[in-house]
Design a protein around this nucleic acid. Structure first.
Length: 520
DNA sequence: GGATCCGTTGTAGCT
DNA sequence: AAGCTACAACGGATC
């Protein structure tokens, strides 16, 4: 009797799932045990625990995965609570003289790699018969280890670098696109599923629900616009990408921070697929391939603008996060300039996080993040520039932590990469003196007009009656307008916590002298 | 080997 | 309204 423990780490899906497909079809395997391990202590940690939105998205994704397993594989998902290493160790010792395999996906994060290496050592030290079966490119298009360890690898810092890495490692298919392996179909399962007898570490969905509600007693005003899970991921892929040639082929740098939809202010103007990708509900190969199908129909945008380009940036950050030591630190990180950010200012950081800076667009974004766990790409630019080199002059680490906790598409490699970028400290950053205006006008790259004005009215309801002319800088509105708009600035909505023009000028100087100082 | 160009996405003021 | 210019000026690649 041979059993495969099918360990879902990131890829919460049945489609394009190599480790699941292998377990379901390999001749070496008689039965499978699909598992997910959840570390509740870590998830609800006081300091770095994740938001309600994030845990809810994860829970929905797991429930959907389980439901789909029941339907398509005549199997189910067992959830364990605890540390991955402990759970796997104890699991593997529950089998007696059988062949036990652990089929799992490679994860590039230092913690994840360390866990696997500890497991390896444990196997050797204890002469365990557990056989590890790792699948390398489950979460990314590139095989991260292979690319990073190739002799000619250099840290990429532009789309050009990525084009050459893709050419070298993937080659081209007959259509002239990078030769990405086609996504695997949902496997058909010929194995039985192992059922475990009582185990105190097993967590059923009711218990999980209970624990979440206990940890988030006041979640009534939190809305989850995005429903977690593969089912929803595939349905969103269908509605946004498949057959949507104009949108896919015309995709370019988003021009507004808000939405496309008249009726639903929470529907992004972009694809809205990021949370599904970060949770592995949607395979990147699946998305890549669907875009390519659309590109074959006619003219289309190219990297860096295109959706393929967006995905290539994702690969870039995955490579860097693996090859750059201390990717998530602001010291001993050679992709991070040493900047003197000065004193940590709790008041400023709190105002930023809670959406009370007195800058309506920034506040709208941060409140949207807080309530829904999502924020538009350009909005992320605006608020991170604002917190760091733009206005508040706070270390990017603080903003990174907030995003990490709250974003439902939170992803360690990408989140750190984007903060390094926006704070202006990375070699791939834009020049530090290009600062987004938090109060955009019609010429700003954060193009606004009425769309964003409505976006602000929705998320900062205090200002809902303000005329568009003043809505981004309401403190400049004459008092008569403030009265007629039923919102006195300084009473009903904060005055700007800094003078944006002064801080902009000061911060450019600070950045410059900080860089000079480290040079000398 | 110095000048020039470029980097997914800047802003403000003027004509 | 759109386009130009000044602002201030990184750092690596390319010419």
């Amino acid at each position: 009797m041979s059993t495969a423990i099918v360990w879902f780490r990131k890829s919460l899906r049945l489609h394009d799932n190599e480790f699941l497909t292998w377990a379901c079809s390999s001749d070496d395997i008689d039965r499978i045990l699909p598992v997910f391990i959840i570390d509740l202590e870590d998830l609800f940690d006081e300091n770095h625990g994740i938001s309600y939105n994030r845990i809810r998205f994860l829970q929905e994704s797991l429930e959907d995965l389980n439901a789909r397993m029941e339907e398509k594989l005549d199997s189910n998902l067992t959830i364990f609570s605890g540390k991955s290493l402990d759970v796997i160790k104890s699991l593997s010792s529950q089998f007696n003289d059988e062949n036990v395999y652990l089929a799992y996906e490679y994860c590039s994060e230092p913690v994840s790699r360390k866990m696997v290496s500890s497991l390896n050592s444990w196997i050797i030290d204890n002469e365990s018969s557990l056989i590890l079966k790792e699948f390398s490119s489950q979460h990314t298009l590139l095989d991260i280890e292979q690319v990073v360890s190739s002799p000619d690898y250099k840290n990429p810092k532009s789309m050009k670098d990525m084009e050459s890495i893709f050419s070298r490692h993937l080659g081209r298919n007959s259509f002239g696109f990078y030769d990405i392996t086609l996504p695997l179909p949902v496997p058909s399962n010929s194995k039985s599923t192992m059922t475990l007898s009582e185990n105190k570490k097993i967590l059923n969905f009711d218990e999980l629900e209970l624990i979440i509600n206990q940890n988030f007693p006041n979640n009534e005003d939190v809305t989850n616009y995005f429903l977690g899970g593969e089912t929803e991921a595939l349905s969103r892929l269908s509605s946004k990408i498949v057959g949507n040639t104009d949108f896919v082929n015309g995709f370019q740098k988003p021009k507004t921070c808000s939405t496309n939809s008249e009726n639903e202010p929470r529907e992004p103007s972009t694809t809205g697929l990021s949370p599904y990708i970060s949770h592995g509900c949607l395979s990147v190969r699946m998305l890549w391939t669907e875009c390519e199908k659309s590109y074959l129909i006619g003219e289309h945008t190219k990297p860096p603008q295109s959706l393929h380009g967006q995905m290539m940036f994702r690969e870039m950050f995955y490579l860097l996060s693996r090859s750059v030591e201390n990717w998530d630190q602001d010291f001993e990180n050679d992709n991070c300039k040493s900047i003197d950010w000065g004193e940590y200012d709790l008041e400023k950081i709190n105002a930023w996080e809670s959406g009370n800076t007195g800058f309506p667009l920034i506040d709208a974004m941060m409140r949207q993040l807080d309530k829904t766990g999502w924020m538009h790409h350009l909005g992320r630019h605006a608020v991170s520039c604002f917190l760091t080199r733009g206005q508040l002059w706070q270390n990017w680490i603080h903003g990174r932590d907030v995003f990490e906790r709250k974003l439902i598409d939170s992803d360690w490699a990408l989140n750190n990469g984007n903060w390094l970028w926006l704070a202006g400290v990375a070699p791939f950053s834009m020049p530090y003196y290009r600062i987004y205006n938090p109060c955009p006008d019609s010429k700003s790259s954060l193009n606004v007009e009425t769309e964003n004005a409505n976006f602000v009215r929705y998320w900062v309801p205090e200002l809902s009656a303000y005329p568009s002319k003043y809505i981004f800088e309401p403190h400049l509105a004459p008092i008569s307008v403030q009265i007629s708009s039923q919102c006195i600035i300084g009473e009903d909505y904060p005055m700007p916590i800094v003078d944006r023009k002064i801080t902009r000028k000061e911060n450019i100087e600070k950045f410059k002298s900080s860089v000079q100082r480290t040079k000398n």
